[in-house]
C-alpha cells in the first residue's frame, strides 16, 4: 500500500471515529431529552415522590439536591480557597509541598464511592449523625475539595507575577497583595471553576447513598427553623437527591412508573447541569470583559 492511500484511509478512519463520538453524544442527549421532557410537568416538579404507586414527582429530591449543593459549596469553597492560595502563593519548594500535592492528587483520584463510605464510617456511624444532609454535604465536600482546590490554584497561577511584584513594591503585605490584587484578577477563572464543580456535585450520587441517605421524608416548606426536625432546612434529616432517586427507582424496582420518573428526572438533571455549564462560560467571559473594558 503506498503512503498516499494509507494517508487517505487513516484520515477516513479518524473522521469516522469523530462521527461516532458525535453520534453518541447526540444520541445520549437526544434520548434523555426526548424521552424525559414529556414527563416533566409542573405536577412532576412540585409533587412528592411515590414509592409504590405511579405518578410521583420529584419536588423533595430537587430541593434536596439544591440544598446539598449550596451547603457543600458553603463548606468547601473557603477551604478550597485557602488551600488553593497556599499551593499557589505560599507553598515553598520542598518535599513537604511535594507530599501535600500528592495528597491532593490522591484525594482527587479516589473513587467517589470510597469517599462516600469514609463519610459513612466517620460521620454516620462514628459521630452518630445518621443519614443526614450534613453528612452528605461533608462527603460531597471531600469529593469536591481537590477539584476545586486545583482549579483555584490554576486560576491564581494564571495571574501574572508582575501583579504580585507591583503590590509588594508598594509596601503591601503578601496577604493584602493576594486578596486585594491577585484574587480579583483571578475571579473569572475561580467562578468558572466553582460553577463547573457545582455541576459535578449536583450529579453525584455514589458519595451520597450512604451519607445523605436514600429516603426523602416529607418536610414542611413553611417551617424556617433549621433546628426543627420537620423543617425543610433541617441539617439532620435524611435527604435523597435527584441523582440518588434515579438510581434508587431503577435498582429497587418497586415503583411502577420507574422508567418515566427516571427519564423525567434525568432530563431535569441534565438541563440543570447544562445550565451550569452555560452559566460558567458566560459569567467568565462577562467578568473578563468587564475587567478589561473601558467601562
Amino acid at each position: 500500500m503506498n503512503s498516499k492511500t494509507s494517508n487517505n484511509i487513516a484520515t477516513g478512519v479518524i473522521y469516522f471515529l469523530v462521527a461516532c463520538v458525535l453520534a453518541i453524544l447526540v444520541f445520549l442527549l437526544g434520548y434523555i431529552l426526548i424521552t424525559g421532557i414529556p414527563h416533566v410537568s409542573w405536577h412532576f416538579l412540585t409533587s412528592s415522590a411515590q414509592s409504590f404507586a405511579a405518578g410521583g414527582g420529584i419536588r423533595d429530591q430537587l430541593f434536596n439536591s439544591m440544598y446539598l449543593l449550596v451547603l457543600t459549596l458553603i463548606i468547601s469553597f473557603p477551604i478550597a480557597l485557602g488551600s488553593g492560595i497556599y499551593l499557589s502563593e505560599y507553598a515553598p519548594e520542598n518535599w513537604i509541598t511535594g507530599v501535600i500535592r500528592t495528597a491532593v492528587e490522591v484525594l482527587s483520584s479516589l473513587p467517589s464511592v470510597v469517599v462516600g463510605l469514609f463519610g459513612f464510617l466517620l460521620f454516620v456511624v462514628n459521630f452518630h449523625m445518621g443519614f443526614s444532609i450534613l453528612a452528605g454535604a461533608i462527603a460531597l465536600t471531600f469529593f469536591n475539595l481537590p477539584l476545586l482546590t486545583r482549579s483555584i490554584e490554576e486560576s491564581l497561577q494564571d495571574v501574572s507575577e508582575l501583579q504580585r511584584e507591583a503590590g509588594l513594591s508598594l509596601g503591601l503585605s503578601r496577604w493584602k497583595t493576594i486578596t486585594g490584587i491577585v484574587l480579583p484578577a483571578a475571579l473569572p477563572g475561580i467562578l468558572t471553576g466553582i460553577i463547573l464543580s457545582a455541576g459535578r456535585v449536583f450529579g453525584e450520587a455514589a458519595a451520597l447513598i450512604y451519607t445523605a441517605g436514600q429516603s426523602a421524608p416529607t418536610v414542611n416548606y413553611g417551617d424556617w427553623n433549621p433546628m426543627d426536625s420537620a423543617s425543610f432546612l433541617n441539617f439532620m434529616r435524611p435527604a435523597e437527591t435527584l441523582a440518588v432517586h434515579i438510581w434508587k427507582v431503577n435498582t429497587e424496582g418497586v415503583t411502577p412508573d420507574a422508567a418515566a420518573i427516571s427519564s423525567g428526572a434525568s432530563a431535569v438533571l441534565i438541563v440543570v447541569i447544562l445550565l451550569f455549564n452555560l452559566l460558567a462560560r458566560m459569567l467568565g467571559r462577562w467578568l473578563y470583559k468587564r475587567m478589561t473594558a473601558t467601562k
Binding site: 501574572s160 508582575l162 501583579q163 503590590g167 508598594l170 503591601l172 503585605s173 490584587i181 484578577a185
Partner: peptide
C-alpha cells in the same frame, strides 16, 4: 520589609497596572 518598600518604591520593566480602574490603581495601596 513592608515599611521599607513604602519608602523605597519600585517601577518594573513591563508595565503592571492592577486589573482595576485608573483611580483604584493609585488609591488601593
Amino acid at each position: 520589609v513592608y515599611e521599607v518598600r513604602k519608602h523605597i518604591s519600585m517601577v518594573f520593566q513591563r508595565p503592571n497596572p492592577f486589573a482595576k480602574s485608573i483611580r483604584e490603581n493609585i488609591t488601593f495601596a
